[in-house]
Write a protein that binds this DNA or RNA. Structure first.
Lengths: 217, 217, 217, 217
DNA sequence: TATGAATGAGATTTCATTCAT
DNA sequence: GATGAATGAAATCTCATTCAT
């Protein structure tokens, strides 16, 4: 409340500054997403954030620090979520997988969230540290959880005897493609309705396969 | 066109002028892959190609032209391949899908080929024309072909009655994830052996599903 | 004037407002000495003074004013001292010179004092006004006094018939070199003991020369 | 010959580039001397050298490299000169000292040469490496040579039994002061005539002292 | 064809200085 | 009086691109 510019002139700058870092990161996210890290000028970010270039440097010591801060901010909540909610789920493996997919779908529909992995992908070559950090904090938290779910399903006789490690690609791959087509090529339907349709079909194919008739094992 | 040997007589082992553009593109590919388009300096490319910076401009009018040339070169063969080889295949849908996956897997194992889609993905935001071009020439050639295969399989009673449009994600998604993990995070096994194991499992899960027991339909 | 305690009653141990400008100047001296005027940031000075950057501007209107204030403060006492104490000395020229050298030596051993001429030297090119001011207030007070002493000594038959104007370099030059070696190259002994040894030798050579045997005149 | 711009328009840039580094250093010397290292902008140097800012960076990787190059260039010839010419001198100590002083005086009259020690003095605080380098290559070459000359003179009975280490200040100190007054405060006569007068008086005082009558020892 | 030399147009980053609280 | 927040103006350094040879 006190942070919002009530009129449109008297406040200008000098906002409480508690919210500044977040605002700057939001602006950076938007710019990095549109233009990539290298092609984004700090001035662009400042303009989007409604502050001066120098003010950006008041909160972040370098352009790279903005990228790092962005990944940091996105990664924090994931780390907590992953293991707890998925591994501790007590229902069937199918239900666990459904839940994961639904959660990820929800996240994907928020462009600010789905943007992060794309940015990491784009800049991984130039900033291996960031790629490694993202891998450690996100990928290597989620994949093992999924693998464990599949392994549990196999052990309990609920799932077929597949290679759990290799099968996670079957679980999340379609989602990744869906997101990439939408984000990179502006193709596909990211609306809740579109995602729901996609998800239903994906789960159907994932669980029961493309081929008619009973599987061999 | 301009790259091809103009006469057909001096073809023996010529390597100079004729091969130069190709060498420059190879160098550009390597640099763009490592550092991204913006962060790559023309001088880097020249150094990798073993020529001087100014010589690069002898063959390509600008840095952007290098990127375009790269995409062009990669796209050409795909366009021809796609429709002919897949659509004209006369066997079962399962075999058609297997063939496609095997072809893609072969391509993926060559880093120079798999690099192109990654580069397109990275630079799509900044160069929508390039993204569009790649989409038109590659994506929109392959996806409809796959969809047609699935639709044919459904019509013939070989495949279950899924949504063909949405199911292509199930076919290529796992491959995409496999490639991304390998390229972005240096994780995963891109050797023929590793790819084979992955492919077998993928096809098994894709065709027969994760869940034990016969599917409802 | 503005620096002095306005009333004469609250004088006890006051340290706040009254001492601030002095503290800031001390901090500036330290920083200018270490890094030079241009390379010193106002924030550095503030940090050394234990106050905020903006507070510096409460006492000095600009960074240049700090430099000026510094020179002012150092120059004031010298101006008074010079003429009175040296010219009014009634003993022999040799004793007068000895006294001057001893005084200068004492000053030199206090780094805060010897720092000022060094700073003036460093910044003279960029701030001719300051150089001129220092020259007027210090150099042109001391040199004529010394010259007068030598001239008096010559007139009284105590000293040889040298060129007094040119000979002041022989009097203070060795001291200057001694100080420069110590300050610039961290070489030499600025302890009282070291200075004493140096001074004894200097006076000996200055008065009686390097060469054995009686001088011709 | 081929390097000189024959007309005044057709050549503009594109000089043979062999002379460029020297030209840039000359320009840097001039600017550093006038404004100091920090206050000099690379663009100033470029303008003085008649080239563009970027061209400066073609020959020197950073502004600091210009300073280093400058010191380097000035130091090289000194190192060779010092020990050989002074120590190998076979005449009397007095003649040796006279020769040294005359050489130094000649150097001092060239502003480009006398500028270097002044620059080193000014920037020593901020760039201790440069100060150390200059000390090692120049100061610690010349001082020991002078000390040795004095010691030889004492041993041969030509000079009085003074402390040679401390007496070098008496030899070069007056010169230093003369140069500082001229360079820093634009006072004093750097013409050959002025220097000659100064040198005669200095040598007279240095050798025979200020005081009339024979010295005690 | 090939390149060394040169530069204009920017990009990141810094800092003296101001101002509302 | 004291300061945290903010910024305009610059300074260093980079790089795609050009051109004479």
């Amino acid at each position: 409340m006190t942070d919002e510019p009530e009129s449109s002139e008297s406040v200008r700058f000098r906002r409480r500054a508690g919210a500044r870092p977040t605002e700057v990161l939001d602006a950076a996210l938007q710019c990095f997403m549109r233009d990539g890290f290298e092609a984004t000028r700090v001035e662009d970010i400042a303009k989007v954030a409604g502050i001066s270039k120098a003010t950006v440097y008041l909160y972040f010591p370098s352009k790279l620090a903005l990228l790092e801060g962005l990944i940091h901010r996105a990664v924090s909540p994931v780390a907590k979520m992953a293991k707890t909610s998925i591994l501790q789920f007590e229902g069937s493996a199918q239900d666990a997988i459904k839940i994961v997919l639904r959660i990820v779908c929800t996240k994907i529909s928020d462009p600010d969230v789905s943007a992060i992995p794309l940015i990491v992908m784009r800049e991984a070559g130039r900033f291996p540290d960031i790629a490694q950090y993202y891998y450690d904090e996100v990928i290597s938290q989620i994949l093992p959880a999924l693998i464990a779910v599949v392994d549990r399903g196999i052990a309990s006789g609920e799932l077929r005897d597949v290679d759990a490690n290799l099968s996670v690609g079957n679980i999340i791959g379609p989602l990744v493609v869906y997101m990439l087509l939408a984000t990179v090529f502006k193709t596909g339907d990211l609306s809740p309705k579109g995602l729901d349709a996609f998800l239903s079909n994906h789960i159907d194919v994932l669980f029961h396969g493309l081929v008619k008739g009973s599987p061999k094992s």
